[in-house]
Every structure is written in structure tokens, then in C-alpha cells.
């Protein structure tokens, strides 16, 4: 074939896409994926915040113990409490121990029982123990030190409450992760359905490609490229919306608003990057496996 210079000088034609676009159907699919990615991003940020809250609350409880002192016959309550505080201060793993005086105890109870009856109430003699965060002293260690000092006291290291808080926060985290996984599964199902629908509508095109030498992998690659790109762009839209919603919550909530209960940080917005990428990967895998299964007659 002789070369034709006029053709050479022209810019190379951009090859048309081998699969025709189905714009109306793709708009709906993009909307669904954007919503799913919005929910997935909220779930991810929720899981991160719940995990952080659990650690925060448990950490606060773990860093403190309360000791109730029962004075002996020959010793007044405040004296016994002061001696217990002094004993506990010397225990390894204790940062600080101080006796709660009656006024402080009354201040704690006043909101519940009213001030009128407080002077007549017999109040327990309490010692507040602040523990070393890294190597906290255990409840048995504190009890042993008190017993050796001849003090009758009971130690509450809040382990009961701490366990409850950790369990509750753990459940919230698991629920958030489960929601995230379910949303990812829903995304995969939506993409698989769209791939099957697209392949059914374009069966003639696929057969023509195949008769001209296209392998199953090539055809599957066309669908995975289409739905991967679609999921990525729709996912970015959904995740950005979720990020804006969370950022608004963080700004409006501040330190005193909603965020102390569910401490959202700006660094959690990294989920915005992760979710669309996961959506695209999910879409690529779902489209590929669906297309290959259908082409080989298994789908």
C-alpha cells in the first residue's frame, strides 16, 4: 500500500470508545453510587469517632480509682482518709492520692439530694487516686497497701464501668464497620447488575467485538474501565458531600456541642479519599467477574 502524505500530516483520529455510552442509565447508577459512598463515608467517620470515644472514655476511667475508707473505732473518718491518701501516694503506679473532704462530697451529692438534708447525712470517706497512665497500679495492689497500713477500705478501680463503656463503644464500632461492609456489598451488587444489564443490551456489540478477535478479558476490561471510572467520579461526589456534612457538624458542634459525645476530627476526612477509591476498586472487580462469568456462560 503506498503511503499517502496527506493522511500523515493530519492529526491522528481519536479512536471512538468501543462500548457506546448509555447516558440515562449511567446517570441513575452514578446517583446510587454517590448515595452509597455518602453513607459509606459517614459510616467510616462514625466508626473512627466511636473507636476514639471508646478509648477516651475508657482511658479516663482507667486513670482513676476511688477508695472508700471505713474508720476504726479509735480513729476519725477524715484522719483515716488522710492516712489512706498518704499510704496510697507512696504506691508505685499512683501519681496522686487525696482525701475528698466533706464539703467536696456534699458538692457532688447536692444536685441529687438537695442541700437541706446534706448536713444530717452520713457520708462515706473517700480517697481519689489518680493512677499513672502508662503503668497504673492494680486494684489488688492498692488494697494490699491499705491492709498493710492497717486500714479497712474498699477499692473501686471502675473496671465494671470501664468494661461496660468499652463494650458499648465496641458495639457501635462493629455496627459502623458492618454498615460499611454492607454498603460495599450493595455497591458491588449494583455494579454487577449494571454490568449484566449493559451486556444484555449490548450483546450484539459484544459478539461483533468477539468475532473480530476480542478476548473475554478485553471485553471485560471495557466494562471494568467504564464502571470503575463511573464509580470513582460518583464516589468522589458522595464522599465530598459526606465530608462537608461532617465538617459542618464539627464546626457547629465544637468542643461543647455534639463532638464530645462523638469526637470527630478533621483528620477523619481522609475517609473521603479512601471511600471513592474503594468504590472504584469494588466496581472494577464486580464488573470484571460479572462480565467474565457471563461471557463464559456461567453468569
Amino acid at each position: 500500500m503506498s503511503a499517502n502524505p496527506s493522511v500523515i500530516r493530519k492529526p491522528l483520529p481519536v479512536p471512538g470508545t468501543l462500548l457506546p455510552r448509555e447516558r440515562s442509565g449511567e446517570r441513575w447508577l452514578a446517583a446510587v453510587i454517590a448515595v452509597l459512598c455518602f453513607l459509606a463515608t459517614l459510616s467510616a467517620i462514625g466508626a473512627l469517632a466511636a473507636d476514639r470515644a471508646a478509648h477516651g472514655w475508657a482511658g479516663e476511667l482507667r486513670g482513676e480509682a476511688t477508695v472508700q475508707v471505713r474508720p476504726r473505732v479509735d480513729e476519725s473518718g477524715p484522719t483515716a482518709a488522710a492516712r489512706a491518701a498518704e499510704t496510697l501516694s507512696a504506691v508505685q503506679g499512683v501519681e496522686e492520692a487525696y482525701a475528698l473532704d466533706r464539703k467536696a462530697s456534699e458538692r457532688l451529692l447536692a444536685p441529687w439530694v438537695g442541700e437541706a438534708v446534706l448536713p444530717d447525712l452520713p457520708l462515706p470517706h473517700l480517697v481519689v487516686v489518680r493512677l499513672d497512665e502508662k503503668h497504673p497500679a492494680s486494684a489488688p495492689t492498692l488494697s494490699r497497701a491499705l491492709a498493710e497500713a492497717g486500714l479497712d477500705a474498699s477499692v473501686d478501680d471502675h473496671s465494671l464501668w470501664r468494661g461496660e463503656v468499652e463494650r458499648a463503644a465496641g458495639i457501635v464500632t462493629v455496627l459502623a464497620i458492618a454498615a460499611f461492609v454492607l454498603i460495599a456489598g450493595a455497591t458491588a451488587a449494583v455494579i454487577a447488575y449494571a454490568t449484566r444489564a449493559g451486556m444484555a443490551a449490548q450483546a450484539d456489540i459484544i459478539e461483533t467485538l468477539s468475532l473480530n478477535g476480542a478476548s473475554d478479558g478485553h471485553v471485560a476490561g471495557l466494562y471494568q474501565a467504564r464502571f470503575g471510572k463511573l464509580a470513582l467520579s460518583a464516589g468522589v461526589a458522595g464522599a465530598v458531600m459526606a465530608g462537608l456534612a461532617m465538617a459542618l457538624l464539627r464546626l457547629l458542634g465544637g468542643e461543647a456541642g455534639l463532638t464530645p459525645a462523638l469526637p470527630v476530627r478533621f483528620s477523619d476526612l481522609l475517609a473521603i479519599v479512601v471511600c471513592p477509591v474503594l468504590a472504584a476498586v469494588t466496581a472494577i472487580l464486580a464488573a470484571r467477574f460479572t462480565a467474565l462469568a457471563k461471557l463464559s456462560g456461567r453468569g
Binding site: 483520529p13 471512538g16 468501543l18 456489540i205
Partner: peptide, 16 residues
């Protein structure tokens, strides 16, 4: 392939 130009239709086996 109705969505491809005449040029792209002829080029199809080569692209594949």
C-alpha cells in the same frame, strides 16, 4: 458497530 465511525469500524480488528 453503529456507534463507531466508518474509519473506526475498519480499524476495529487492528485495534483489537
Amino acid at each position: 458497530l453503529d456507534h463507531l465511525s466508518a474509519f473506526d469500524n475498519v480499524a476495529l480488528p487492528l485495534r483489537l
